[in-house]
Simulated scan of single mutants.
Amino acid sequence: MSTSDERGRLAPRSRRWRLPDLRRWVSPVGLVLLWQVASATGLLPPEKLSSPWTVLHAGLDLVRSGELGSAFAVSITRVGTGFLFGATIALLLGILAGLSTWANVLIDPPVQMLRTLPFLGLIPLLILWFGIGEEPKIILVALGVAFPLYLNVHSGIRNVDDHLIEATTALGYSRAERLWHVVLPAAVPQTLVGLRQSLGIAWLALIVGETVNADAGLGYLINNAREFLRTDVIVVGLVVYAVLGLVTDALVRLLERRALRWRAR
């Protein structure tokens, strides 16, 4: 049989949807069952941590009352706004510092100094500057997004293969053509890595911002539940945060598979 025939027979298989590996669910399901057994036998007191069954009922009650939906909408809006500002600033600064030597000298040192600051420790200062409204939470998310994304964009552009640059020079590419067809596409993989890191830190920044000073959102829901010792509601809020983080990460991984289809697997 010829090589082309073999490729023709193997190609459809590679395009089939792969079933999820159910073995990955064994340990999470086992932990939940162990949690339920510990709660049912009294080893885990409800005032310390509610059982999974109680948490499920609390989540359903929050959904029916509309509390979870309104808190979800507020938190999503904060993350979306903060991410938009942080990502825009990071992309602009990263591209400028990556492409220009002078911009790199002017931009990179202060960014490197600022990124070493514990940005979560800026909360008191942000409250003094902007009060307890939406601004501190959005700025906190923007800072969490900006630094890892900037670092990856800057590094991706700076580490483009020199052989590719030499090839474009030999082919007579202009500076704009070299930038559009070689430099920016070569920086996409690392930029997407930075995007995944940024989204993870964005949710962390939001959790801290909402639990410190907020009158709405998932963090406020958790903080309010703490006052009444409602561990079931606290766990519901944490689960929603975790699910949102997993969903956003999965969306970026989907974008990565679509954008990087040209890479050899």
Rank of each mutant, 00 (worst) to 15 (best):
W53F: 12
A216V: 10
D5A: 15
L60S: 06
R196N: 09
R158S: 14
P148R: 07
A87G: 13
I89P: 01
V252A: 14
G219M: 03
P118N: 08
V188W: 02
L206F: 06
R175D: 12
H163K: 10
I76R: 00
A97E: 05
T248Q: 08
W262K: 01
H57N: 02
R9S: 13
R175H: 10
N223V: 02
L96E: 01
T77V: 09
D21N: 15
L19D: 03
N152H: 11
F72S: 08
P45H: 08
M113K: 09
L43M: 09
N152M: 03
W25E: 02
L91Q: 08
I138H: 11
V233T: 14
L164M: 14
E166G: 02
G66K: 04
R261K: 11
N224H: 12
D162P: 01
V105Q: 13
P109K: 13
T231H: 06
R78K: 13
F228Y: 14
A250T: 04
L49P: 03
S27L: 12
R18W: 04
Q36V: 08
Y173W: 03
I157S: 05
L149E: 06
R23A: 13
S4L: 11
R258Y: 09
F83R: 07
G94P: 03
A167R: 08
E134N: 09
V239P: 00
Y173I: 03
